[in-house]
Design a binder for these strands. Structure first.
Length: 217
DNA sequence: TGCCAGGCCGGGT
DNA sequence: ACCCGGCATGGC
């Protein structure tokens, strides 16, 4: 009998197929998207990123040199734009202060990078892990609201379980494999958007319905 | 129409 | 150590 997290992954992959995530062309774009999507619909983030592209600012040093006021206007559609402009600026300046390129920034070990990212005001555990996994290719697992909700509804955690406990569930249950961590999180977001939303869950048609507590197998 | 979306921080107990 | 309000646009 496979572990719940193995079974959930198998079913999600069988149902949806590979997601080939993160939506973003370059590590910088992925990093920017990770900040902009904080508590925000991805559709809005896309508009903001399109604005940055249109202004030809999706380049590390040009973006780091852009004023927060200008950034705020460009990223307005992503919401919380004043806050996020400062957060983006904090992140980009922290990187360019020490490194000439993103490649250089990522040329360190996972733990050290994680600490550096978390030291930036506005970068929390999820944003840091998203950047590390999807932009940097490091083997870490991203926990988001969908993951929390999924684990909760499947009875695998309690309400109060924190980020690192949830992350440890995945890290200890799965082989350390960047492609797997990437794909699994992408599938969780996919099933979350479609079936496991906060207000209108559609558990009756969810591909995981047979795994839900109380389901008749 | 009100409520929500791939968080995080800071201030008040 | 919690708990909670604030941040903001666009879509259903």
């Amino acid at each position: 009998m496979p572990q719940p997290l193995d079974e959930i992954y198998r079913r999600l992959l069988a149902h949806f197929g590979p997601q080939h995530w993160w939506p973003g062309d370059t590590p910088l774009e992925i990093m920017v998207g990770a900040v902009l999507t904080q508590n925000t619909n991805w559709e809005n983030v896309e508009k903001a990123i399109a604005n940055l592209k249109g202004a030809d600012l999706l380049e590390l040093h040009r973006l780091a040199a852009t004023s927060t006021g200008m950034l705020a206007e460009l990223i307005r559609p992503s919401g919380y734009y004043n806050l996020k402009a400062v957060r983006l600026h904090n992140l980009l300046r922290a990187i360019t202060a020490e490194h000439a390129s993103l490649e250089s920034f990522f040329a360190a070990d996972l733990q050290a990078l994680r600490e550096q990212l978390l030291a930036v005001k506005g970068i929390g555990p999820e944003t840091a892990d998203s950047i590390l996994l999807y932009a940097g290719g490091f083997p870490t697992f991203v926990i988001d609201a969908y993951t929390h909700r999924l684990l909760l509804r499947h009875g695998l955690i309690g309400e109060e379980t924190d980020y690192y406990e949830m992350q440890e569930l995945f890290l200890s249950a799965l082989p350390e494999d960047v492609a797997l961590f990437n794909e699994y999180h992408a599938l969780i977001v996919r099933v979350g958007k479609e079936f496991c939303r906060k207000t209108k869950p559609r558990c009756d048609t969810c591909p995981l319905r047979e795994l839900l507590p109380g389901a008749v197998a």
